[in-house]
Amino acid sequence: MTANYRLNHLRELESESIFVLREVAAQFENPVLLFSGGKDSILMVHLAVKAFHPAKIPFTLLHVDTGHNFQETIDYRDQLVERIGANLVVGSVQEAIDKGMVREETGFNATRNYLQTAVLLDSLEKGKYDAALGGGRRDEEKARAKERFFSHRDEFGQWDPKNQRPELWNLFNGRKLYGEHFRVFPISNWTELDVWQYLAVEQVELPSLYFAHEREVFKRDGMLLADSEVLPRRPEEQLEKKMVRCRTIGDITCTGVWESQASTLEDIIAEVSIARQTERGGRADDKRSETAMEDRKKQGYF
Protein backbone atom coordinates (compact mmCIF):
# COMPACT_ATOMS: atom_id res chain seq x y z
CA MET A 1 0.00 0.00 0.00
CA THR A 2 2.73 2.41 0.95
CA ALA A 3 4.58 1.79 -2.30
CA ASN A 4 2.73 4.60 -4.05
CA TYR A 5 3.23 7.09 -1.27
CA ARG A 6 6.70 8.23 -2.23
CA LEU A 7 8.02 11.66 -3.10
CA ASN A 8 10.91 11.84 -5.51
CA HIS A 9 14.03 13.62 -4.28
CA LEU A 10 13.10 17.00 -5.78
CA ARG A 11 9.65 16.99 -4.19
CA GLU A 12 11.12 15.96 -0.86
CA LEU A 13 13.66 18.80 -1.00
CA GLU A 14 10.88 21.18 -2.02
CA SER A 15 8.76 20.10 0.92
CA GLU A 16 11.66 20.51 3.36
CA SER A 17 12.43 24.02 2.06
CA ILE A 18 8.78 25.07 2.23
CA PHE A 19 8.67 23.84 5.82
CA VAL A 20 11.72 25.96 6.69
CA LEU A 21 10.30 29.05 4.94
CA ARG A 22 7.05 28.71 6.87
CA GLU A 23 8.97 28.31 10.13
CA VAL A 24 10.72 31.59 9.41
CA ALA A 25 7.42 33.36 8.79
CA ALA A 26 6.03 31.91 12.02
CA GLN A 27 9.03 32.42 14.30
CA PHE A 28 10.35 35.83 13.26
CA GLU A 29 8.81 39.27 13.27
CA ASN A 30 10.61 40.91 10.40
CA PRO A 31 12.31 38.47 8.05
CA VAL A 32 14.04 39.52 4.85
CA LEU A 33 15.03 37.46 1.82
CA LEU A 34 18.50 38.14 0.43
CA PHE A 35 18.10 38.32 -3.33
CA SER A 36 21.22 38.32 -5.48
CA GLY A 37 19.71 37.59 -8.87
CA GLY A 38 21.51 34.26 -8.94
CA LYS A 39 19.72 30.97 -9.55
CA ASP A 40 19.77 29.98 -5.87
CA SER A 41 17.95 33.10 -4.74
CA ILE A 42 15.56 32.76 -7.69
CA LEU A 43 14.84 29.23 -6.49
CA MET A 44 14.30 30.53 -2.95
CA VAL A 45 11.78 33.13 -4.15
CA HIS A 46 9.98 30.48 -6.20
CA LEU A 47 9.74 28.20 -3.14
CA ALA A 48 8.54 31.10 -0.98
CA VAL A 49 5.78 31.89 -3.48
CA LYS A 50 4.73 28.22 -3.30
CA ALA A 51 4.91 28.12 0.51
CA PHE A 52 2.45 30.97 1.07
CA HIS A 53 0.19 30.71 -1.96
CA PRO A 54 -2.36 32.22 -2.48
CA ALA A 55 -1.08 34.91 -0.07
CA LYS A 56 1.87 37.10 -1.03
CA ILE A 57 5.28 36.17 0.35
CA PRO A 58 5.71 37.59 3.86
CA PHE A 59 9.34 38.61 3.22
CA THR A 60 10.87 41.82 1.97
CA LEU A 61 13.49 41.24 -0.75
CA LEU A 62 16.90 42.76 0.00
CA HIS A 63 19.40 43.17 -2.81
CA VAL A 64 22.92 44.25 -1.96
CA ASP A 65 23.89 45.99 -5.17
CA THR A 66 27.62 46.32 -5.72
CA GLY A 67 27.01 48.73 -8.57
CA HIS A 68 28.98 46.23 -10.66
CA ASN A 69 26.10 43.98 -11.53
CA PHE A 70 25.28 42.59 -14.93
CA GLN A 71 22.42 44.68 -16.38
CA GLU A 72 20.53 41.43 -17.05
CA THR A 73 20.46 40.77 -13.29
CA ILE A 74 18.89 44.13 -12.48
CA ASP A 75 16.28 43.80 -15.24
CA TYR A 76 15.37 40.32 -14.09
CA ARG A 77 15.11 41.46 -10.46
CA ASP A 78 12.76 44.33 -11.26
CA GLN A 79 10.47 42.14 -13.35
CA LEU A 80 10.34 39.46 -10.66
CA VAL A 81 9.48 41.95 -7.91
CA GLU A 82 6.72 43.36 -10.10
CA ARG A 83 5.30 39.91 -10.88
CA ILE A 84 5.09 38.63 -7.28
CA GLY A 85 4.18 41.99 -5.77
CA ALA A 86 7.01 41.99 -3.24
CA ASN A 87 8.76 44.88 -1.50
CA LEU A 88 12.31 45.45 -2.67
CA VAL A 89 15.02 47.17 -0.62
CA VAL A 90 18.37 47.86 -2.28
CA GLY A 91 21.53 48.22 -0.21
CA SER A 92 23.98 50.16 -2.33
CA VAL A 93 27.72 49.53 -2.14
CA GLN A 94 28.30 52.61 -4.33
CA GLU A 95 26.49 54.75 -1.77
CA ALA A 96 28.54 53.25 1.06
CA ILE A 97 31.74 54.07 -0.85
CA ASP A 98 30.57 57.63 -1.55
CA LYS A 99 29.75 58.14 2.12
CA GLY A 100 33.13 56.76 3.16
CA MET A 101 31.61 53.88 5.09
CA VAL A 102 33.79 51.43 3.19
CA ARG A 103 36.90 51.86 1.06
CA GLU A 104 37.16 50.45 -2.40
CA GLU A 105 39.97 48.08 -3.35
CA THR A 106 42.26 49.16 -6.15
CA GLY A 107 44.35 47.32 -8.71
CA PHE A 108 43.56 44.71 -11.31
CA ASN A 109 42.00 42.22 -8.92
CA ALA A 110 39.88 44.83 -7.17
CA THR A 111 36.41 43.59 -6.32
CA ARG A 112 33.52 44.97 -4.33
CA ASN A 113 32.64 41.48 -3.13
CA TYR A 114 34.15 42.09 0.31
CA LEU A 115 32.44 45.46 0.69
CA GLN A 116 29.08 43.69 0.44
CA THR A 117 29.41 42.38 3.98
CA ALA A 118 29.46 45.84 5.55
CA VAL A 119 26.56 47.03 3.40
CA LEU A 120 24.59 43.87 4.15
CA LEU A 121 25.03 44.23 7.91
CA ASP A 122 24.18 47.92 7.69
CA SER A 123 21.02 47.19 5.67
CA LEU A 124 19.93 44.48 8.12
CA GLU A 125 20.38 46.88 11.01
CA LYS A 126 18.58 49.77 9.33
CA GLY A 127 15.60 47.57 8.41
CA LYS A 128 15.56 45.98 11.89
CA TYR A 129 15.37 42.58 10.22
CA ASP A 130 15.59 39.67 12.65
CA ALA A 131 16.08 36.91 10.08
CA ALA A 132 17.77 36.98 6.69
CA LEU A 133 17.03 34.16 4.26
CA GLY A 134 19.99 33.19 2.13
CA GLY A 135 20.38 30.82 -0.82
CA GLY A 136 23.55 29.15 0.52
CA ARG A 137 23.89 25.41 -0.08
CA ARG A 138 26.00 22.97 1.88
CA ASP A 139 27.49 21.34 -1.21
CA GLU A 140 28.99 24.63 -2.39
CA GLU A 141 32.04 24.92 -0.21
CA LYS A 142 33.52 23.18 2.81
CA ALA A 143 32.76 26.04 5.21
CA ARG A 144 29.12 25.71 4.21
CA ALA A 145 29.01 21.93 4.80
CA LYS A 146 28.57 22.54 8.54
CA GLU A 147 26.10 25.37 8.26
CA ARG A 148 22.73 25.08 9.95
CA PHE A 149 19.31 25.81 8.46
CA PHE A 150 18.90 28.34 11.28
CA SER A 151 22.29 29.96 11.73
CA HIS A 152 22.69 32.15 14.76
CA ARG A 153 24.55 35.47 14.42
CA ASP A 154 25.68 37.66 17.29
CA GLU A 155 25.03 41.38 17.53
CA PHE A 156 27.96 42.01 15.18
CA GLY A 157 26.46 39.69 12.56
CA GLN A 158 29.29 37.22 13.03
CA TRP A 159 29.19 33.46 12.55
CA ASP A 160 30.92 31.44 15.24
CA PRO A 161 31.29 27.87 13.93
CA LYS A 162 31.93 26.57 17.44
CA ASN A 163 28.81 28.13 18.88
CA GLN A 164 26.02 26.89 16.68
CA ARG A 165 22.88 25.25 17.91
CA PRO A 166 22.43 21.57 17.23
CA GLU A 167 19.58 20.94 14.80
CA LEU A 168 17.53 17.80 15.24
CA TRP A 169 14.52 16.38 13.39
CA ASN A 170 12.51 19.34 12.12
CA LEU A 171 12.73 21.40 15.30
CA PHE A 172 14.31 24.78 14.52
CA ASN A 173 15.22 26.94 17.48
CA GLY A 174 14.95 30.57 16.37
CA ARG A 175 15.10 32.16 19.83
CA LYS A 176 17.46 35.07 20.17
CA LEU A 177 18.46 37.96 22.34
CA TYR A 178 17.67 41.54 21.41
CA GLY A 179 19.96 42.76 18.64
CA GLU A 180 20.94 39.30 17.45
CA HIS A 181 19.64 37.85 14.24
CA PHE A 182 19.50 34.65 12.25
CA ARG A 183 20.61 33.68 8.79
CA VAL A 184 18.35 30.98 7.46
CA PHE A 185 19.25 28.72 4.54
CA PRO A 186 16.13 26.95 3.28
CA ILE A 187 17.92 25.22 0.37
CA SER A 188 20.83 23.87 2.44
CA ASN A 189 20.32 20.31 1.20
CA TRP A 190 20.08 21.07 -2.52
CA THR A 191 23.02 20.38 -4.82
CA GLU A 192 23.78 22.37 -7.95
CA LEU A 193 22.26 19.60 -10.06
CA ASP A 194 19.11 19.47 -7.90
CA VAL A 195 18.62 23.21 -8.40
CA TRP A 196 18.87 22.98 -12.18
CA GLN A 197 16.69 19.90 -12.39
CA TYR A 198 14.02 21.52 -10.25
CA LEU A 199 14.09 24.83 -12.12
CA ALA A 200 13.62 22.85 -15.33
CA VAL A 201 10.76 20.73 -13.96
CA GLU A 202 9.05 23.86 -12.63
CA GLN A 203 9.78 25.82 -15.82
CA VAL A 204 11.10 28.79 -13.89
CA GLU A 205 12.24 31.69 -16.02
CA LEU A 206 15.92 32.59 -15.56
CA PRO A 207 18.22 35.48 -16.46
CA SER A 208 19.69 35.11 -19.94
CA LEU A 209 23.22 35.08 -18.48
CA TYR A 210 22.81 31.45 -17.48
CA PHE A 211 22.40 30.40 -21.10
CA ALA A 212 25.12 30.30 -23.73
CA HIS A 213 25.59 33.64 -25.45
CA GLU A 214 28.39 35.35 -27.35
CA ARG A 215 30.45 37.69 -25.22
CA GLU A 216 33.83 39.45 -25.19
CA VAL A 217 35.92 37.71 -22.56
CA PHE A 218 39.52 37.47 -21.39
CA LYS A 219 41.55 34.96 -19.42
CA ARG A 220 42.91 35.56 -15.89
CA ASP A 221 44.20 32.96 -13.43
CA GLY A 222 42.78 30.19 -15.58
CA MET A 223 39.29 31.70 -15.52
CA LEU A 224 37.36 33.53 -18.20
CA LEU A 225 36.04 36.94 -17.14
CA ALA A 226 33.55 39.15 -18.97
CA ASP A 227 34.75 42.39 -20.53
CA SER A 228 33.44 45.36 -18.57
CA GLU A 229 34.42 48.94 -17.90
CA VAL A 230 34.62 48.13 -14.17
CA LEU A 231 37.18 45.40 -14.80
CA PRO A 232 40.51 46.82 -16.00
CA ARG A 233 42.68 44.44 -18.02
CA ARG A 234 46.41 43.92 -17.82
CA PRO A 235 48.24 44.61 -21.11
CA GLU A 236 48.68 40.91 -21.87
CA GLU A 237 45.00 40.12 -21.31
CA GLN A 238 43.49 40.06 -24.77
CA LEU A 239 39.74 40.10 -25.50
CA GLU A 240 38.27 37.18 -27.41
CA LYS A 241 34.72 36.51 -28.59
CA LYS A 242 33.40 33.23 -27.19
CA MET A 243 30.14 31.37 -26.57
CA VAL A 244 29.90 31.43 -22.78
CA ARG A 245 27.47 31.20 -19.87
CA CYS A 246 27.55 31.79 -16.10
CA ARG A 247 27.25 28.93 -13.63
CA THR A 248 26.90 31.36 -10.74
CA ILE A 249 26.05 35.02 -10.94
CA GLY A 250 27.67 37.57 -8.68
CA ASP A 251 29.47 40.82 -9.12
CA ILE A 252 30.99 41.18 -12.64
CA THR A 253 34.47 41.57 -11.20
CA CYS A 254 34.58 38.10 -9.70
CA THR A 255 32.11 35.99 -11.68
CA GLY A 256 33.88 33.69 -14.09
CA VAL A 257 32.12 32.62 -17.25
CA TRP A 258 32.41 29.18 -18.82
CA GLU A 259 32.67 28.19 -22.45
CA SER A 260 29.41 26.49 -23.23
CA GLN A 261 26.88 25.78 -25.96
CA ALA A 262 24.07 25.09 -23.47
CA SER A 263 21.07 27.11 -24.62
CA THR A 264 18.25 25.36 -22.72
CA LEU A 265 17.79 24.11 -19.14
CA GLU A 266 18.03 20.55 -20.47
CA ASP A 267 21.40 21.38 -22.03
CA ILE A 268 22.55 22.91 -18.75
CA ILE A 269 21.54 19.83 -16.76
CA ALA A 270 23.42 17.62 -19.20
CA GLU A 271 26.44 19.90 -18.82
CA VAL A 272 26.27 20.03 -15.00
CA SER A 273 25.83 16.25 -14.79
CA ILE A 274 29.20 15.67 -16.40
CA ALA A 275 30.96 18.81 -15.16
CA ARG A 276 34.39 18.16 -13.71
CA GLN A 277 34.79 21.48 -11.90
CA THR A 278 32.76 22.78 -8.97
CA GLU A 279 30.62 25.80 -9.80
CA ARG A 280 32.60 27.95 -7.37
CA GLY A 281 35.71 27.01 -9.37
CA GLY A 282 34.80 30.13 -11.36
CA ARG A 283 34.60 32.43 -8.38
CA ALA A 284 37.66 34.57 -7.90
CA ASP A 285 36.47 35.49 -4.39
CA ASP A 286 36.96 31.88 -3.26
CA LYS A 287 40.41 31.64 -4.78
CA ARG A 288 42.06 34.21 -2.55
CA SER A 289 42.98 31.58 0.02
CA GLU A 290 42.05 28.07 1.09
CA THR A 291 39.84 29.40 3.85
CA ALA A 292 38.43 32.43 1.99
CA MET A 293 34.79 31.43 2.49
CA GLU A 294 35.22 30.47 6.15
CA ASP A 295 36.91 33.79 6.89
CA ARG A 296 34.21 35.82 5.12
CA LYS A 297 31.41 33.91 6.82
CA LYS A 298 32.84 34.67 10.24
CA GLN A 299 32.69 38.36 9.40
CA GLY A 300 29.04 38.18 8.45
CA TYR A 301 29.14 37.41 4.72
CA PHE A 302 26.16 35.64 3.16
Partner: peptide, 25 residues
Amino acid sequence: GLKAEREQGITIDVAYRYFATPKRK
Protein backbone atom coordinates in the same frame (compact mmCIF):
# COMPACT_ATOMS: atom_id res chain seq x y z
CA GLY B 1 37.16 20.42 7.97
CA LEU B 2 37.48 24.08 8.76
CA LYS B 3 40.58 26.05 9.66
CA ALA B 4 39.17 26.53 13.16
CA GLU B 5 39.06 22.75 13.51
CA ARG B 6 42.48 22.02 12.06
CA GLU B 7 44.09 24.58 14.32
CA GLN B 8 42.54 23.06 17.40
CA GLY B 9 42.65 19.46 16.21
CA ILE B 10 38.94 18.99 16.80
CA THR B 11 35.88 18.33 14.66
CA ILE B 12 32.86 20.53 15.06
CA ASP B 13 29.74 18.41 14.99
CA VAL B 14 27.98 17.38 11.84
CA ALA B 15 29.14 17.99 8.28
CA TYR B 16 26.71 17.24 5.47
CA ARG B 17 27.87 15.76 2.17
CA TYR B 18 26.06 14.90 -1.02
CA PHE B 19 26.33 12.47 -3.85
CA ALA B 20 23.96 10.85 -6.25
CA THR B 21 23.56 7.83 -8.49
CA PRO B 22 20.86 7.51 -11.15
CA LYS B 23 18.75 5.65 -8.59
CA ARG B 24 19.09 7.75 -5.45
CA LYS B 25 20.35 11.03 -4.12
